[in-house]
């Protein structure tokens, strides 16, 4: 038992070392800043300005969209960038598993997502007049969602290429459609039935619903289901990321 705990601690330390390295190198890379910070702001303005909706109701969507874009913007950069910069082989020869390596990439995206998501929250409170009805629910939703989308980012980075632009293109191909089916701009309960069914396939729907609940705008699915769905997506993305990264090594080398 003690050995297992020690091994887990060692593994986590190594993942944190990878995350720290990622933070130092990738947080300020232009694609991360453009797609992780500027893009969600412009998308939001494009859909919010001029629409006849209560200002407070825009905040949950803005926050959900920001978590998606920020948390998933770092991961897709890392593996292809490292393959191109020829630093990837060294990582693979270090005493850490693919799971620990992927976890390090996820943690970098997760922390970035958490920190940057404070900006729309402050904007929501100061400009849109939003207030957090259930702070603990908000915090838990934010944490789970940021981890889930960071895992999605790490999964997309498994594409065996050394061109970061290829992965960024793929990630936008996945993320942008999610905005339109996940209740970001229109609450899910106001969507048509087929739209509501489609929304259930998107992890962003559960974040969006959780944010509405936490900010006092009601919920379609309730807290428990939203948390369970996000945990399910985390498990799927993490497993898939590890599987495809491992498979990608064979193709790269």
């Amino acid at each position: 038992m003690q050995a297992v705990s020690q091994s887990a601690t060692t593994g986590l330390r190594r993942s944190l070392a990878v995350a720290k390295k990622n933070a130092m190198i990738y947080y300020l890379k232009p694609p991360v800043l453009i797609f992780g910070v500027l893009f969600p702001v412009f998308m939001f303005l494009a859909f919010a300005v001029g629409r006849d909706v209560p200002r407070q109701s825009l905040a949950p969507g803005l926050i959900a969209m920001t978590i998606l874009f920020t948390a998933s913007s770092v991961g897709p950069m890392i593996a292809p960038w490292e393959r191109k910069a020829k630093t990837y082989e060294r990582l693979l020869s270090a005493p850490l598993s693919i799971l620990q390596l992927v976890l390090g990439d996820i943690l970098a995206g997760f922390i970035y997502g958490l920190v940057i998501s404070l900006v729309p929250l402050l904007l929501g409170i100061l400009i849109l007049g939003a207030h957090i009805e259930y702070p603990l629910l908000y915090a838990a939703g934010l944490i789970l969602s940021a981890f889930c989308f960071a895992a999605l980012g790490a999964l997309m980075a498994a594409l065996p290429t050394d061109e970061p632009s290829m992965v960024m293109m793929l990630s936008n191909l996945v993320r942008i459609p999610l905005l339109f089916i996940s209740g970001v701009f229109i609450p899910i309960n106001q969507m048509p039935v087929w739209g509501q069914k489609l929304a259930m396939l998107s992890p962003l729907s559960y974040t969006s619903d959780l944010m509405r609940l936490a900010l006092g705008h009601g919920s379609l699915w309730g807290g428990y289901l939203n948390f369970a769905a996000l945990l399910f997506f985390i498990a799927v993305f993490l497993q898939a990321a590890v599987f495809f990264h491992r498979r990608g090594i064979v193709r790269v080398f």
């Binding site: 330390r13 190594r14 990878v18 390295k21 910069a85 020829k86 630093t87 082989e89 990582l91 020869s93």
Partner: peptide
């Protein structure tokens, strides 16, 4: 290990490259 055609992390200082390796090996 010094892999074939490997590179250092060019966005990190020499010192931070070594610190990262140290952390990676515990």
């Amino acid at each position: 290990i010094v892999p074939e055609m490997a590179n250092v992390y060019v966005d990190l200082s020499a010192w931070n490259n070594l610190m990262f390796m140290g952390e990676l090996y515990g």
